[in-house]
């Protein structure tokens, strides 16, 4: 047994202590505090004293607030739609970038630009592309006679969701590509050769060999993508602020508007607790996947 492994656990704990203290204080504690606040009527304005109101905040959303259920549905559309399209774009891109092509390293680097760009800038660019009057999307569609009149993509309840999902897919697919590329590189060449000897080619090779072998990668990166989309409201906020009306409000934007626009932080906290529960379930699933694969 090596010297270090024999060592007192003390040294390891000592090295870990600062990190653990930081995360418990600034990350775990707020999550717990959130639960406490969700039972209060904490507000930023007016009220002097904070009172416990029991389950009132939860009751408000689950039984009274008619918007809550449609917002929950929006969240599901937003999260699963985004992740689905990220895979639809991300997997083929990874396949192409895994082939023998010139300057492959360069393309693999450039593909990550959307992922690393600040989300506010991404929103600005796409807002301009979608613009109802001057946007280039309308221009192209007009040129190809796919539309006869300009569409106000972000202002119309029918087109706002596809537009948001396209933007979200564009921003997020490089991450999927990155992960799938890594997964592809882990597949032994012999597997393909064996399959080719058996006469499998092209799409069948992909469907019966590549995809099943990629399954763990797809699960792991999919769960991360779900959580990331679930806990961010920035893209929606800059592009539409949840509008028109409440068409594109999700739980994340609703937490923000309740807490920081209506200053009703107790209600915001209650929404956050419900949202946290969902993330917790997905995360536990993720940890289980990781542990199974590392055994």
């Amino acid at each position: 047994m090596s010297l270090l492994k024999r060592l007192s656990h003390r040294v390891a704990y000592l090295f870990l202590l600062p990190t653990l203290a930081y995360l418990i204080g600034f990350q775990t504690y707020p999550l717990v505090e959130n639960i406490r606040l969700s039972f209060t009527n904490l507000s930023l304005i007016g009220r002097e004293s904070v009172e416990y109101v029991g389950w009132e905040n939860y009751r408000h959303f689950l039984a009274v607030d008619k918007q809550f259920w449609s917002i929950l549905w929006n969240t599901v559309v937003w999260v699963f739609g985004s992740v689905l399209f990220q895979f639809v774009l991300g997997i083929p891109t990874a396949l192409v970038l895994n082939m023998r092509i010139r300057a492959r390293g360069l393309w693999r680097g450039l593909i990550l630009i959307p992922w690393v760009m600040p989300v506010v800038v991404v929103s600005i660019v796409w807002k301009w592309i979608f613009d109802g009057q001057w946007g280039i999307l309308n221009f192209f569609l007009r040129e190809f006679h796919l539309i006869s009149r300009n569409v106000i993509w972000l202002g119309n309840p029918q087109t706002v969701w596809p537009s948001l999902l396209l933007t979200s897919a564009w921003k997020g697919f490089p991450y999927i590509t990155l992960m799938v590329l890594a997964g592809l590189q882990g597949i032994e060449k012999e597997v393909y050769e064996a399959a080719k000897v058996d006469g499998a080619t092209g799409f069948r090779l992909f469907w019966h060999i590549t995809l099943p072998l990629l399954q763990p990668t797809i699960f792991v990166s999919g769960l991360v993508a779900i959580v990331t989309t679930w806990t961010k409201f920035e893209l929606i906020w800059v592009l539409t602020e949840g509008g028109p009306g409440n068409t594109t409000s999700t739980l994340a934007t609703y937490i923000y508007t309740n807490s920081f626009v209506f200053y009703d932080m107790g209600k915001g906290a209650a929404l956050a607790v419900m949202s946290t529960l969902v993330v917790l379930i997905v995360s536990l699933f993720y940890v289980k996947m990781l542990r199974r694969s590392s055994v």
């Binding site: 959130n34 904490l42 994340a252 949202s275 946290t276 995360s283």
Partner: peptide, 21 residues
């Protein structure tokens, strides 16, 4: 596992208590 879980709970989930804190 604690580390993996910590990175999941971000943004809107911890906003209200952070503001108060």
């Amino acid at each position: 596992i604690f580390l993996i879980l910590s990175q999941m709970f971000q943004g809107p989930l911890i906003m209200v208590p952070w503001y108060k804190m």
